[in-house]
């Protein structure tokens, strides 16, 4: 029990040290950092413009007011940014190809945690921008403190699940084809779908984005919870589903890493 606790503390410490180092590295190039901040802020801004244009030229989507759709789409941007903060698809591929992962495998830390500590740092600006837009949307709809807590928890678990899902895709594609530049676009594509009400994709789409690709658990259902369309029992059900995903993805990633060969080696 104590050993497990120590291990967890040591892993978290490693994660935080890596975060601090990454931030120092990013801040060393101040001009670059500032320009990337602008770039990252464009994602929530585009979401705001996009939803505003839809409701500027039409009545929007059935069952969704302007603020509700803004909340949902911004949750999509928030989770997409959080996933990018955890995993940089191109960098992970580079590490796999050049043998960088080999070094991680020799260290006494979980490789997944090391990979997640090397994500794209400047997307924090996009996370903060999305939180501001979500706050603005929330101030115009009725939310309860409990639904806010459930929303935050589900977005957090959902973001980690999505990051694990993307990592599993990267490892699978690397093992099969040794390349995968397209996976970043694939990740963006998933969040394009996930930032809309799942109902518009019909039953097949809803099932696909709930039990096959966990983007619904990370984006759509948390927004539904916050709006008040889902209750605590549904919250518990989707958290359970996320945990099942996490368990299965963790096992799968572990198996992929065990049989991994670097191209450099």
């Amino acid at each position: 029990m104590n050993a497990t606790k120590n291990k967890t503390v040591r892993n978290l410490y490693m994660f935080m040290v890596n975060q601090a180092y990454s931030w120092k590295e990013v801040l060393a190039y101040r001009q670059q950092f500032i320009s990337y901040l602008f770039y990252a802020m464009l994602a929530p801004l585009t979401t705001l413009v996009f939803v505003s244009v839809i409701y500027g030229v039409s009545n929007g989507i059935a069952g969704w007011s302007y603020y509700q759709l803004l909340l949902l789409s911004s949750t999509g941007t928030l989770v997409s940014s959080a996933v990018s903060y955890l995993i940089n698809v191109r960098d992970t591929f580079e590490q796999l190809l050049r043998g960088g992962i080999d070094v991680f495998l020799t260290k006494p830390y979980p490789v997944i945690l090391v990979i997640f500590s090397r994500g794209t740092k400047f997307t924090l600006a996009s996370i903060l921008g999305s939180v501001a837009v979500i706050g603005y949307a929330m101030s115009n709809i009725t939310v309860t403190p409990l639904s806010v807590i459930e929303y935050v928890l589900m977005v957090a678990i959902g973001s980690i699940t999505m990051a694990m899902f993307i990592l599993a895709m990267v490892l699978t594609w690397y093992k099969r084809f040794m390349n995968g530049n397209w996976l970043k676009s694939f990740s963006d594509l998933i969040f394009n779908f996930g930032g809309m009400p799942l109902g518009i994709y019909g039953l097949v789409g809803t099932i696909l984005f709930t039990v096959m690709i966990p983007v619904g658990i990370a984006v759509y259902y948390p927004a539904e919870l916050l709006i008040g369309r889902l209750g605590s029992s549904e919250f518990a059900l989707f958290v359970m589903l996320a945990l099942v995903f996490l368990y299965a993805l963790n096992k799968y990633i572990g198996r992929q890493l065990n049989s991994y060969n670097s191209a450099a080696g």
């Binding site: 989507i61 059935a62 594509l189 809309m196």
Partner: peptide, 15 residues
């Protein structure tokens, strides 16, 4: 890439 937007706009036009 445009598929999500196409489905979304179809929902807007229909509604």
């Amino acid at each position: 890439y445009p598929l999500a937007l196409v489905i979304m706009w179809t929902a807007v036009y229909t509604f």
